[in-house]
């Protein structure tokens, strides 16, 4: 079956990257494996969405995986709120500021992030890579949630200006 062979090949070529995305966001191996299954089921069934997207294939695949992992973590954390795990939520794993930024250094977005204050750029990177919520970002930076939202939206405004320049 031609389409199945294509899917197998696609899986072989892309599973490591997408699993890396799920692992990073979910930080739990078993959950990441489950999420990865759901991601490829989604890719198979929603391939028609790709046809109308302007994204490059690999960007589209990463977006599907990231959004799915973030949806999972968001609903997971809602359920856990008020439980003992709250302590864990308040202490997100290694500061995203410390994350090495690999590859594609010349990309526009890196240049534009450098135009932001260091801590604000770190907040944007952290949100993107590990899927931190407004609530978590506010907690980590010790500011009220609305302040965090204002800061991030100002950063996004500057980014947009820079990206369109």
């Amino acid at each position: 079956m031609r389409d199945r062979a294509a899917f197998d090949l696609l899986y072989r070529q892309t599973n490591a990257k997408l699993f890396g995305v799920c692992l990073r966001v979910l930080t739990d191996r078993a959950e990441a494996e489950e999420a990865l299954q759901e991601v490829y089921v989604k890719i198979w069934t929603k391939a028609d969405r790709y046809a109308v997207s302007d994204l490059s294939p690999i960007s589209w695949l990463v977006a599907v995986a990231r959004n799915h992992a973030i949806d999972r973590i968001r609903t997971r954390r809602v359920k856990q709120t008020g439980l003992d795990e709250a302590a864990e939520i308040a202490d997100p794993t290694p500061g995203p500021e410390a994350l090495a930024v690999a590859g594609d250094e010349g990309a526009r977005v890196h240049h534009c992030l450098e135009e932001l204050e260091a801590d604000r750029a770190a907040a944007v990177r952290g949100a993107y890579l590990v899927g931190e919520s407004y609530a978590e970002l506010a907690e980590r930076h010790g500011v009220p949630l609305n302040t965090m939202r204002t800061w991030l939206r100002r950063s996004l405004m500057k980014l947009k200006d820079c990206l369109e320049r």
Partner: peptide
């Protein structure tokens, strides 16, 4: 999307 380069496969 270039930020996704930091995801380790």
């Amino acid at each position: 999307s270039p930020l996704a380069a930091a995801y380790v496969p």
